[in-house]
């Protein structure tokens, strides 16, 4: 009786979020997936005739394959550098009692509070051919002609790392701050140096945070549209831009849906890997 009531109560609690997921996640994705299997039609947008040609086009045409490969590469690099830069930052923020803590926290969140327009303008002023970096290097006599920084893959990764840093740092902070301080103390009384304490205890125990942060940064950077477009210029084509172009402008919904399905599939497989490895940690 009580168990049944509990279950009913549980179902009641989960109903709103379940409906939300159904209507805003599962149904749209299902719609996308099915649209990807329809034929493109110039005036009807799609013909309800089943075909694999959209997916085939993505896999066979090197142009689209390059977009997929570049998306994976830049998302991977963004994740890697966010982790390498974010971990020391998160570590410092959880350990310090310094007055700088608040200021640093603010700096981590700051990119989220400025609009994309202001931020992009900052990047242009910084990285452009007439930008601060190039002018400084030329004035210092280090280079004769401006370096191409803006409109490169490097620039996109730098901008993505910057904007997505909070998504890496906050899961890390929560997994680092949640650790029992006695564990490190125990390790040190057992003879571990500070470096060994970190490698043996702190780092492995922050794995859920590393995984969570990486999944967030990877999925968000793989799906990003505005930064590759504005910072990457014509040479950096990522999947998000292509989907945006196909769905909203060119109105080739079947191909756009196929590409979106592929992106969602890639993101879901990353999330799946996350849950698999996280379960292994807990067991």
């Amino acid at each position: 009786m009580a168990a049944a009531a509990d279950r009913r109560f549980g179902i009641g609690l989960l109903t709103p979020i379940g409906l939300l997921y159904l209507f805003f996640l599962i149904l749209p994705i299902g719609f996308f997936l099915s649209m990807g299997f329809f034929k493109y039609d110039v005036f009807g947008l799609y013909k309800p005739e089943l075909t694999g040609e959209n997916f085939a086009r993505l896999v066979v045409d090197p142009y689209y394959l390059d977009i997929v490969a570049l998306t994976l590469k830049l998302a991977g690099l963004t994740t890697l550098f966010s982790l390498l830069l974010g971990y020391p930052l998160a570590f410092f923020l959880t350990r310090t009692r310094s007055a700088w803590r608040g200021a640093l926290m603010f700096l981590v969140v700051a990119p989220l509070t400025t609009g994309v327009i202001v931020r992009t303008y900052g990047w242009i002023v910084l990285m452009g051919a007439e930008g601060i970096v190039n002018k400084t290097l030329i004035a210092a006599g280090l280079i004769a002609r401006p370096l191409q920084i803006l409109h490169t893959e490097t620039a996109v990764v730098i901008a993505l790392v910057h904007i997505l840093m909070p998504y890496m740092v906050f899961p890390l902070i929560s997994s680092l701050a949640g650790q029992d301080p006695n564990l490190e103390r125990a390790a040190s009384t057992l003879g571990a140096s500070r470096a060994r304490c970190f490698l043996e205890v702190t780092l492995p125990l922050s794995r859920p945070g590393i995984l969570m942060g990486s999944v967030l940064v990877f999925t968000l950077s793989a799906g990003s549209v505005v930064i590759p477009q504005l910072i990457g210029g014509k040479d950096v084509q990522m999947m998000g831009q292509s989907i945006y172009e196909l769905v909203l402008h060119t109105l080739n919904w079947p191909l756009g849906s196929a590409m979106a399905s592929l992106l969602v599939l890639l993101q879901f497989s990353i999330i799946f890997v996350y849950f698999r490895s996280n379960r292994r940690v807990r067991r």
């Binding site: 303008y121 051919a129 409109h151 014509k234």
Partner: peptide
């Protein structure tokens, strides 16, 4: 280069890129 919208173009013109 590619200019993406009104604001972006303005920024590129102001920065003389």
């Amino acid at each position: 280069q590619v200019i993406n919208n009104v604001e972006h173009t303005k920024q590129m013109l102001v920065a003389e890129e």
